[in-house]
Design a protein around this nucleic acid. Sequence first.
DNA 1: CCTACCGATCGGTAGG
DNA 2: CCTACCGATCGGTAGG
Lengths: 190, 190
Amino acid sequence: MKTLARKDQIRLKAQMLFRERGYSATSMRDLADELGIEAASLYNHISSKEEILQGICFGMAESFFAAVEPVTLSALDPKAKLQSALEAHLRVIAENSDASAVFLHEWRHLGEPFLSDFKLMRRRYEKLFVTLVEEGIARDSFKKMDARVVARTILSATNWTFESQKTSKSDGDATIQQIAELLVEGLIRR
Amino acid sequence: MKTLARKDQIRLKAQMLFRERGYSATSMRDLADELGIEAASLYNHISSKEEILQGICFGMAESFFAAVEPVTLSALDPKAKLQSALEAHLRVIAENSDASAVFLHEWRHLGEPFLSDFKLMRRRYEKLFVTLVEEGIARDSFKKMDARVVARTILSATNWTFESQKTSKSDGDATIQQIAELLVEGLIRR
DNA sequence: CCTACCGATCGGTAGG
DNA sequence: CCTACCGATCGGTAGG
């Protein structure tokens, strides 16, 4: 369907621009220029600038949950589970680097009630990793440590690492495993 | 209690607002309101909005170098040196959390030639940590690994960790040591 | 998807 | 530090 395709084009270009310049510094005219149309024409496909941001932020949230939640429910042992979850998280970022950067940085420009919804969702997601660490500690697979600090440190490291990386398809998988292993082996294993 | 020079007051409030809303989403009128004056009055103390951003970004750059460079030149063994450098880095962030957040996120809104200068400086700073890791590997104090990946992972973890933390004076030092130790012990020691 | 246009707000200046 | 104001640009609408 033609309209859908156009809407996707808008979203893709918006992801790029929001990542590069930030949401507030990107004008609808910038976005329209990138697509070779007039700013007014955008509104045939979307109803507001913020709607685009919402689509990116909540769409990525879905992607992250869809990738990581199944892993947390699996029967793997704690270490393998955490490492798999981390790799799943990293894979989502690697495959959607623009959208991920927007997800990580631009969500604060959401208006209410979306802002509150987003924050809640983000807490729930981080909780997945905290729980994995807690489980590992409880079952004596991980050394004893502050699960919240460790989980946050791990997520932080992964998120930031991809910030300034181009992640070419070739070395992408190697880097993902490298990082996931580095973190899990180093920080977690007793 | 001595009152701050107006220029310093402007900078402090700007740091808060730039951090909370982002540089582009913060207007000079927002900033003026926060100080209880008119927007036009700001220009008696500063010459442009971007000048404020420049002051924050390059001022923090100086703070980071001043704190970390001496450590890299010290005679400590590789592990102690890296951990000290990391703690110095973390202390600067903890003591200037608003300005650090701006330094980390808002620099991209600098115009040329400041943008290029900033990027160069940032590379030089990261290089300090890469070199520390390389030294440790060369002297067989650290396990063999990709120094650039490790250094970046460490910095990433530290930077992000303070993002959403209030860092109350009380638990600040504990957290700094906790994080620095976690990273160095876990990722680096052979 | 375009032309034509809106009110609001932007960073900044003039002049006191 | 204020009043008064500037041209530019913003997100968005009307109507075809």
